[in-house]
Design a protein around this nucleic acid. Structure first.
Length: 338
DNA sequence: CGTATTTGACCCGCGC
DNA sequence: GCGCGGGTCAAATACG
């Protein structure tokens, strides 16, 4: 979590403009900016036209719906934070030696991408540091309640040596669920890091394509990310992170660029970042008792919500998308429009 | 012109 | 051994 956010007294999310059909409490924060003007331009509140009444009703309805959805989101985020903190706690308590990350070993900054894997296996034979991974492995057998996230990789108990090795070589995996506008076809999850897309693929079990990203902030950073819409609910983006960053988070100025040039990257960022620092702090704060854990969880929930709101309100492209959506909605609802 | 994204092809692991 | 499917590469393309 950005330090400055915690320094914010409290972010005012008290917005009354009708929320867009995005289903986010954060959205209205942005909606204040323009849609309000839009409404004022188009309608005269004093007259109380039937359409105005209808609009108000609709706005109220959407507002209620929005609240519901945001509550659901909050719950999900809270669960995620809890799970993450549990995971972090177990990892930190168990993997003292895990200081180094497997990362750069083979790549070591001088990535000379020889022609595909065949040559890799011939030339490099990059020895993945199995020890640290092996030591980390046991902690990954977490019984995550709720089945919400990062469940992968916990099932490598088959005992087969080769499989074990493969599992041990796997980097740390976590999942992040992000709400996204279904109309937004991009698979962009802004999480504060810079990502470079290197592939996209349609998988068998999901008609939506899966996008593959590498961390582009640090050349040697081993972290990869897969983003795919949920098969059940395509308003949900599932981001799967593999590995750990071997660098700090980019400064906000760079975070905004999320992929530097961002041809299609500058899309509405309905993203919540898996801020490990925060979760570590939460884990530290809630190491033991349920009360402490609950308090930490509550804190995390608040901070995440605030951060999401801040992220959204600062993103101009999101504002634009929101204005478009809202104006379209308003036009839809006004049958007597000129 | 430099850089990021797209996209088809390739590689490899796994199940049958 | 073969086919399938996921993951990755790299040339082509697009964009600032």
């Amino acid at each position: 979590m950005d330090p400055w956010i915690s320094s914010q007294p409290s972010l005012c999310l008290d917005l009354r403009v009708g929320p867009p059909p995005l289903g986010h409490r954060q959205a209205p924060a942005v909606a204040m900016v323009k849609p309000k003007v839009l409404v004022e331009e188009t309608f005269q509140p004093l007259k109380k036209d039937p359409e105005v009444v209808a609009l108000e009703t609709e706005l109220q309805r959407m507002s209620a719906e929005n609240r519901q959805l945001s509550e659901m989101l909050t719950t999900v985020v809270a669960k995620y934070a809890e799970l993450q903190s549990q995971s972090s706690d177990m990892v930190t308590s168990g993997a003292n030696a895990g200081g180094g990350n497997p990362s750069s070993t083979s790549e070591g900054g001088s990535i000379s991408p020889s022609r595909k894997r065949k040559s890799e296996s011939l030339d490099d034979s990059p020895p993945p540091p199995p020890q640290t991974q092996a030591q980390r492995q046991p902690q990954q057998h977490l019984h995550m309640p709720g089945g919400l996230a990062f469940a992968d990789q916990t099932e490598c108990t088959s005992g087969e040596p080769c499989k074990r090795i493969r599992e041990e070589c796997k980097p740390k995996i976590s999942k992040l669920y992000v709400h996204a506008d279904p109309s937004d076809l991009s698979l962009v999850v802004k999480d504060g890091y810079q990502w470079r897309k290197y592939g996209q693929k349609v998988t068998k079990d999901n008609p939506c394509p899966r996008a593959y990203y590498r961390c582009s902030f640090a050349p040697a950073c081993p972290v990869k990310k897969k983003v795919q819409r949920s098969a059940e609910d395509n308003t949900i983006l599932v981001a799967t992170y593999e590995g750990e960053h071997n660098h700090g988070q980019p400064p906000p100025a760079q975070q905004n660029s999320d992929g530097a040039s961002g041809k299609s990257a500058g899309k509405p960022p309905h993203a919540t970042a898996p801020h490990h620092h925060q979760e570590h702090a939460a884990a530290a704060a809630g190491v033991v008792t349920g009360e402490q854990a609950a308090a930490a969880s509550e804190l995390i929930r608040r901070n995440l919500a605030e951060q999401m709101a801040m992220t959204l309100t600062k993103d101009p492209s999101f504002k634009a998308a929101l204005v478009t959506a809202l104006s379209g909605r308003i036009l839809e609802l006004s049958p007597t429009k000129d």
